[in-house]
Design a protein around this nucleic acid. Structure first.
Length: 290
RNA sequence: GGAGCCAUAGCCAAGUGGUAAGGCGCAGGUCUGCAACACCUUCAUCGCCGGUUCAAAUCCGGCUGGCUCCU
């Protein structure tokens, strides 16, 4: 059995992961694209050692800030961790909000080592690329304006990598638990979480900012990228914080959409007054399916 | 009391006679390599009343509300 805990940012996944690990003799595998990185602790709301309560957590702090960690790496690392945990006779518990990471680990996504031969196709317009893709296979559906994905797809085609239409799970008995709550309540929690951590967060980002590190993770991660204008004295702290909140809300929404449509999730409404009830509900679902 | 300016979607905002740009948010989506990414869809008849005109958000009058100045 493999348990997978998903849900939007700030809903309480980490806590559930630890609880389920205790009940099912499991180990947690992080499925959060930012918590993968060292030094991004506060802004990523990375689970602390104390919060881990002795449960082994995999794939946290395994990448350096300068690394360009992608789903290819994650697929490899996560599958390795899953096998190791299964070999021990324990239950792997994936916990995180990065949907594509989870899908690439658990489903038959065929990814190859990143290749420097990949082309940017700078000489081609979006429409050119789109037409080439359609000429190769009319049934491929792809956004005409999404250059990033168009380029990637054309590279795949040129390498004759086959992409199956419907991805299949490569493991038996995977149970998806999706934590959810009322949207407004979630937004309140997100805002409060940020307000509570803003002082240490500024400290963390200031530190990284001074080191002048070129990092994709830093430039992309919510809670980090928005703060740089503040350090450059281009924006007030207040407006940067608002921006973080806004981006977090948008992110949470996208996560819901992804999990709702991309994974067979069993949704559980979190009871914040009595979390043990939430755990119990999850246990019921898991025991029913295993 | 007088004079002037303004009034367009939840917010910002373009449009000065020909049938409402854009941005943000909200809502709904897409998803096999930056995924906390990237991208897509949807969303108003222009403060109210009346007039001029084939045609008004655009011109005229009144009303209401806001801002500035004067007494």
């Amino acid at each position: 059995m493999i348990i997978c805990v998903v849900g939007p940012t700030g809903v309480g996944k980490s806590k559930l992961g630890v609880s389920l690990a205790k009940i099912y003799n499991g180990e947690v595998i992080n499925a959060d694209s930012v918590a993968i990185y060292k030094y991004l602790d506060i802004g990523s709301a990375k689970i602390t050692l104390k919060e881990q309560e002795g449960i082994p957590h995999h794939l946290i702090d395994v990448a350096n800030l300068e690394d360009n960690y992608t789903i290819y790496d994650y697929q490899k690392d996560a599958r390795k961790a899953i096998s190791q945990i299964l070999e021990k006779g324990k239950v792997p518990i994936l916990v995180g909000g990065s949907g594509l990471y989870i899908k690439s680990a658990l489903y038959d996504y065929n990814l190859e080592e990143e290749n420097t031969k990949d082309k940017e196709y700078e000489e081609l317009s979006n429409e050119d690329i789109y037409n080439k893709i359609k000429a190769y296979d009319e049934s491929i559906e792809i956004d005409k304006n999404n250059r990033r994905r168009l380029v990637r797809m054309l590279n795949k085609i040129s390498k004759e990598i086959i992409i199956s239409k419907d991805a299949k799970l490569i493991y038996d008995n995977v149970i998806f638990i999706g934590l959810t709550t009322d949207t407004n309540l979630l937004y309140e929690r997100i805002n409060k979480r940020l307000d509570d951590m803003i002082i240490p967060l500024i400290d963390e980002v200031d530190n990284l900012y001074r080191k002048n590190i070129k990092s994709k993770a830093l430039e992309n991660a919510i809670g980090y990228k928005e703060l740089f204008p503040f350090f450059r004295h281009e924006q007030t702290l207040e407006s940067c914080v608002e921006q973080i909140k806004q981006n977090s809300r948008n992110y949470a929404k996208r996560q819901f959409t992804f999990f709702k449509h991309q994974l067979p999730v069993n949704w559980v409404n979190v009871n914040y007054e009595d979390f043990s009830k939430t755990i119990l509900e999850c246990v019921k679902i898991i025991d029913n399916q295993k």
